[in-house]
Amino acid sequence: MVGIVLVSHSAGLAAETAALARSIAGDDVPVAAAGGTGDGGLGASVDLVEQAIRAADQGDGVLLVADLGSSVLTARLVEEPGRVVLADVPFVEGTIAAAVTAGAGAPLGQVLAAADEARGFRKCT
């Protein structure tokens, strides 16, 4: 199964988004959170992102979903073409679309495409 890693400025935001995604997509989907700096502050940590990638990686690739600024830059630093890929998507909607598709056993390219589609989701129309 493709793994999902959430890279956020906030540890709480990453952890809760991961919990939300698992509650919708199923507990067996490997969703790992990498939020905040290692010492509990707001920001991004390469070490935490690398740990989360190792935790979520089952050998089928990992999709990174980042929130803002340094999260995006940090995620871009750890990308590995074809294996660890950053999605350019809204944080919550992209994560859920990716997790549901990963849970169905889809390969990394399809999980990325599903996350990409989330950019066009409308909520009120």
């Binding site: 700096t37 502050g41 920001g43 991004a44 940590s45 390469v46 070490d47 600024g69 340094s70 830059l73 940090t74 871009r76 630093l77």
Partner: peptide
């Protein structure tokens, strides 16, 4: 810098 800064300037100056 990449490992220790925690903000956008870490990856940018580090790279």
């Amino acid at each position: 810098l990449i490992r220790r800064v925690g903000g956008a300037s870490g990856p940018l100056y580090g790279s």
